[in-house]
Simulated scan of single mutants.
Amino acid sequence: MDLSNIPKPIWYALTAFLLLTIGYGAANHVPGLNSSDKESAENKASTVPNSSSVKVSVFDEATQAPVVGAKVIVESQGGSDTDTTDNLGAFRVQIPTTDYVKVRISKNYCEPYNQDLNLKSNPDRPKPIFLKCSVPQKKYMPSS
């Protein structure tokens, strides 16, 4: 696809739109960046008193590659938080302080993960979790 034929004013408008979209997304997803004082359901866990940050890194067991876009649910007695892993396989949640949490992770082509995680040892280090994932098999399509 040749993009060199797009007129410059349209190219500038598309670039500006992309940058504004990225900036708006960052402002709404980075806690404390926007000026809203309203408490939303998305960041409710981060405002819990006596809470701690839980850092999780999810990797493919066979390849050691980060698992991107995995759904992570972390639950404790005082609450839960849910999100997806980023491009480094990382995820951070804020939950009420506790020694153990239940972690559930799901991703297409990976076995579900459902374990308790000990937060007492090295509380500031990311907890590595390894999923058993398989590469989807491509269907053989005979050429005509």
Score class of each variant (00 low, 15 high):
I6Y: 07
I6C: 08
I6V: 14
P7A: 13
K8Y: 13
K8G: 10
K8M: 15
P9T: 00
I10Q: 10
W11S: 05
Y12L: 10
A13E: 13
L14G: 13
L14P: 08
L19V: 10
T21G: 11
T21Q: 10
G23T: 03
G25F: 12
A27H: 09
A27Y: 12
H29I: 06
H29C: 14
G32I: 04
N34A: 01
S36I: 06
D37A: 07
E39C: 08
S40Y: 07
A41Q: 09
S46G: 11
T47N: 11
V48R: 04
P49D: 15
N50G: 12
S52D: 07
S53F: 08
V56T: 09
D60C: 00
D60E: 09
A62I: 01
A62H: 01
A62R: 02
T63L: 05
Q64S: 14
A65G: 00
P66T: 01
K71T: 15
V72S: 01
V72T: 02
V74Y: 00
G78N: 06
G79N: 04
S80N: 12
T85M: 00
D86Q: 07
L88C: 08
L88H: 08
A90G: 13
A90P: 08
I95L: 14
P96Y: 06
T97S: 15
D99E: 15
K102E: 04
K102P: 00
V103C: 00
I105Y: 01
N108R: 05
C110H: 06
E111I: 03
E111S: 13
P112S: 09
P112D: 07
P112R: 02
N114S: 05
D116F: 07
N118V: 03
N118L: 05
K120W: 12
S121T: 15
N122P: 06
R125T: 14
K127I: 14
I129W: 01
F130V: 09
F130M: 12
L131W: 00
S134L: 11
K138D: 12
Y140K: 11
Y140Q: 14
Y140A: 13
